[in-house]
């Protein structure tokens, strides 16, 4: 029974930990399936987290904070898009530039606004996304097995967690069942053909990076106004890169990426709880090695030892109209 309880708690934590990864990985998928490399997830997430916490603090409303986060990340996406799509600059370099820029800028503006060493002031309850109790959760709480699963695991998360899990089928539907999605994937595979069909490759790619911005903005807002209660310098701590790894691990597809995010979230949640714990028979768990697992697994996958991750064909190549 205790094992069951620990398992439920761990899965519960996995859902909370994977939420920002899921949103950011989907953001990466939208951008990269259209042919634009998006290494800037980390920086955009930071920008989103900062805007959300700042605006939520001033307005007392997390939804306005969320909108501010999305506006910020759309802005950053457009800068990235301008560099990559219009200027045909190097997409890797543009992504790194945004990451570095946001790491400094969020702290700098934070200090200028609040003079608290780059932190934003702690948000009160009304300014944060609060846990939602699903209907009937209290009633079934004491039912064995199902009770804890429904009450602990499924109920009691904030709205962004549910949005993230809903976003996965939604992204799949948009990408594989709509004309927009078809074209989006086509500009990432064979932009020449799309162009011949009379559709603007440039416009299509811009629309894709804007979608990416919307999703990664939510991911940032989750960190500072739902899971946490303020912004902290570099609070993403590599989550953008883990999301990137999850996207690659999920082979640039929404559902496999979801599972990669859940796996990486689970490893993170488990590592957090194993810190300094001495397991009988094993000794102290080398937590760092658990934490490195997502990266190691991604490299192994990229190396083609467990399946193959094939990126979109036109990924990283700016489109030059042929005459």
């Amino acid at each position: 029974m205790e094992i069951f309880q620990i398992g439920v708690l761990l899965l519960d934590a996995t859902l909370r930990t994977s939420t920002p990864l899921i949103l950011a990985a989907l953001a990466g998928i939208f951008s990269e399936r259209s042919g634009t490399i998006n290494l800037a997830l980390e920086g955009m997430m930071l920008g989103g987290a900062f805007s959300a916490a700042t605006i939520a603090f001033y307005t007392g409303n997390p939804w306005i904070g969320l909108l501010a986060a999305i506006a910020t990340t759309i802005g950053l996406s457009l800068i990235h898009g301008f560099a990559c799509i219009t200027q045909r600059g190097n997409q890797v370099v543009s992504g790194m530039a945004i990451n570095i820029l946001m790491s400094g800028l969020t702290a700098l503006v934070g200090i200028a606004l609040f003079a608290q060493g780059g932190k934003t002031p702690a948000l009160d309850k009304a300014s944060r996304f609060q846990p939602i109790t699903l209907p009937g959760a209290e009633a079934v709480r004491d039912v064995p097995i199902l009770g804890p699963i429904y009450f602990e695991l499924l109920s009691g998360h904030n709205v962004l967690v549910y949005i993230a899990f809903f976003a996965v089928p939604a992204a799949w539907w948009v990408m594989y069942r709509t004309r927009f999605g078809l074209r989006l994937r086509a500009v990432g595979e064979n932009p020449g053909a799309v162009d011949t069909a009379g559709i603007s490759v440039v416009l299509m790619r811009y629309r894709a990076v804007v979608c990416s911005g919307v999703l990664v903005g939510m991911s940032g807002a989750y960190l500072s106004t739902a899971q946490g209660a303020s912004f902290l310098q570099d609070m993403t701590a590599g989550k953008g890169y883990i999301a990137l790894a999850a996207m690659v691990f999920g082979k640039w597809r929404p559902f496999p990426a979801l599972f990669a995010c859940l796996l990486f979230g689970f490893l993170d949640a488990a590592a957090t709880r194993l810190q300094g714990v001495i397991l009988p028979g094993i000794g102290e768990v080398p937590v760092q090695l658990v934490q490195a697992l997502p990266y190691v697994l991604t490299v192994i996958l990229l190396a083609g030892f467990i399946g193959r991750a094939t990126p979109p064909k036109a990924l990283g190549r700016a489109y030059v109209k042929e005459r």
Binding site: Q5, Q227, A229, A269, T272, Q275
Partner: peptide
Amino acid sequence: LVNFVGTTGAAWNDPIRGGELTKTQIGK
């Protein structure tokens, strides 16, 4: 129940992980 956040200086500045550990302790 006793848990630790990490082994480096970053452990002093990670409220999210701190909150996670607390939620688990509450769950227990």
